[in-house]
C-alpha cells in the first residue's frame, strides 16, 4: 500500500501538507511535525507535491505503517 510518510527530523511543521490533504489525514502534532493518519491516507501525493522541506513522501508501506 502506498501511504504518506513523514520524516519528522526534516519537517518544519508549516502545515501545507495538512491544508492540501483531501482526506484530512494529516495533523500537526503540537506544532512540532506533521503526523499522517495511515488509516485515512489514500497515498494521493498532494502533500508530497506541496511540502517545501521535502520531508513528506508517499512510500510503499506494509499494513499502513513503515
Amino acid at each position: 500500500m502506498r501511504k504518506a510518510v513523514n520524516d519528522i527530523d526534516i519537517c518544519v511543521a508549516c502545515g501545507v501538507c495538512a491544508n492540501q490533504c483531501p482526506r484530512d489525514a494529516i495533523s500537526i502534532f503540537k506544532g512540532c511535525y506533521a503526523v499522517v493518519d495511515a488509516g485515512k491516507c489514500v497515498g494521493c501525493g498532494l502533500c508530497e507535491k506541496a511540502c517545501p522541506a521535502g520531508s513528506i513522501k508517499v512510500l510503499e508501506v506494509e499494513n499502513g505503517s513503515k
Binding site: 518544519v12 508549516c14 501545507v16 506544532g31 512540532c32 506541496a50 517545501p52
Partner: peptide, 25 residues
C-alpha cells in the same frame, strides 16, 4: 525557483515557533 512555500522551511518565525513548541512538547 522552488516550491510555493519554500520560504516556510527557513522562515525565522517558523523556526522560532517550532523551537518553542518542541521545548514545550
Amino acid at each position: 525557483l522552488y516550491k510555493e512555500r519554500t520560504w516556510c522551511s527557513f522562515c525565522p518565525m517558523g523556526t522560532m515557533t517550532q523551537g518553542i513548541c518542541k521545548i514545550k512538547a
